[in-house]
Design a protein around this nucleic acid. Structure first.
Lengths: 188, 188
DNA sequence: GTCTATACCCGGATAGAC
DNA sequence: GTCTATCCGGGTATAGAC
C-alpha cells in the first residue's frame, strides 16, 4: 500500500501541511500548493499521483506527530487518562485543520503505513486499563469534546475544563460496568 | 434574526433537505436543487437570499426534528440517559448528511429561531441530573461516538454497543465530581 | 522536473426581459 | 416567479515541449 515518497515529494507534503494548517482545508488545492512552492500545479503530478495521495500523506505525518506526542509523556508519573486528555486536546487545538482532515472522513487505510493507527491508539488503551470498549468510549468522549470546541458548540467564553474533568473522572472512576444503577465500587 | 420563510421557500427547503439526505453535502448546490424543483438555479434567489440561508433553514428543521424525537420519548419510564443515547444515535444514523451539516461548522445562530438550541439540549441536561458540565461531557461522548461511527473509525464489522454501554454507564454511575480519586458520593 | 496550454468540470450569484 | 444570458471564480488533471 503506502508507496514510499521521494525526498522532493516529502518536502511538497510538508509545505502542503503548512498550507492546510495556516489557511484551512479549502485552501489546500493543487494550485495554491504550487504557488507556495514556486512551481505550477501541473508539476506536482510528477511527484504525487493525485490529490488523494497528497492528503493521505499529510494524514500519515499527522498521525506520526500525534503518536510521538503521546509517547513523549507516557510513564511520566501523572495520571494516565488525564495526561492522555491533555495531550490529545493540545494536539487538536494546536492543529485544528490538520485534526479535521485526519478525522472528517474514513481513513484511507490503504494509503497509510502499516501499524500507524494502532500506534496512535495504544496510549489510550493502556490508560483505561486495556478494555477496548472502554478505550473506544473514552476516545469518543475526547474526540467529541475536541469537536465541540472546534465547532464552537460550547457556550461562548465558557471554560471547557469542567466538562473535560467530568469525562475524565467518568472513565477513570469505575472498575467495571455496573449492572444497573449508581452502585459505585469503592477503591480498597 | 431568522426571517420567516414564505410557504414556497419552506417547500424549497424541504426539497433541499431531501437532496442533502439522499446525495450528500457536495450534491447540495443551487443548480442541483433547481433541477429537483424543475426550475433554474437563478430563480431560487427570488425565495432565499443565498445558499447560507438555505443551509441555515435546513439546520433549523433538523434541530426541530431532533428535539421532537427526544420529546416523544421523555418520561416513558426507561432509563433517561440510555434513552437519550438511543434516540440520539438513531437520529444521527438515520440522517447522516443532515447530522453532519448540523454539527460540522459553528452554528449560524443569527439565522436560527430563538430558543431552538436550548430546546434540543434540554433532554440531556435532565437525563444527567441537571449538571451542565456533566451534560456537556455526556453530549461530547454521544457526538463522538456518532462521528466515529459515521466516519467508520471503529474497527469494521464490530458492534459499537459495548462502547456505547461503557459511556452510558460512565455518565450514569457517579453522583458528582470526585475531588481527586474515585471517592464517589453516596446518594442519600 | 518544470513549463505552457488546455480540457473539462463545477460553483454562487446578478441583470434584465417577460 | 420564472426565464436566459452571463460574470467571475474555482477545481483536478493530462499532453507534450523543453
Amino acid at each position: 500500500m503506502a508507496k514510499p515518497l521521494t525526498p522532493r515529494a516529502r518536502q511538497i507534503v510538508a509545505v502542503a501541511r503548512e498550507l492546510l494548517e495556516e489557511e484551512g482545508a479549502e485552501a489546500l488545492t493543487m494550485r495554491r500548493l504550487g504557488e507556495r512552492l514556486g512551481i505550477r500545479a501541473a508539476s506536482l503530478y510528477k511527484h504525487l499521483p493525485n490529490k488523494a495521495a497528497l492528503e493521505a500523506a499529510i494524514i500519515a505525518v499527522g498521525f506520526e506527530d500525534a503518536a510521538a506526542a503521546f509517547e513523549a509523556v507516557t510513564g511520566n508519573g501523572t495520571e494516565p487518562l488525564d495526561t492522555f486528555a491533555r495531550v490529545y486536546r493540545a494536539f487538536a487545538l494546536a492543529h485544528p485543520h490538520l485534526y479535521r482532515l485526519m478525522t472528517d472522513q474514513p481513513l484511507p487505510r490503504d494509503l497509510l503505513p502499516e501499524g500507524l493507527e494502532q500506534r496512535a491508539a495504544a496510549p489510550l488503551l493502556q490508560a483505561v486499563g486495556g478494555d477496548p470498549a472502554r478505550a473506544r468510549a473514552a476516545f469518543a468522549f475526547a474526540h467529541g469534546m475536541v469537536m465541540l470546541e472546534l465547532t464552537q458548540r460550547l457556550p461562548p467564553g465558557e471554560d471547557p475544563w469542567p466538562a473535560w474533568r467530568e469525562g475524565i473522572a467518568a472513565f477513570r472512576a469505575r472498575a467495571t460496568t455496573p449492572g444497573q444503577r449508581a452502585t459505585a465500587k469503592h477503591p480498597h
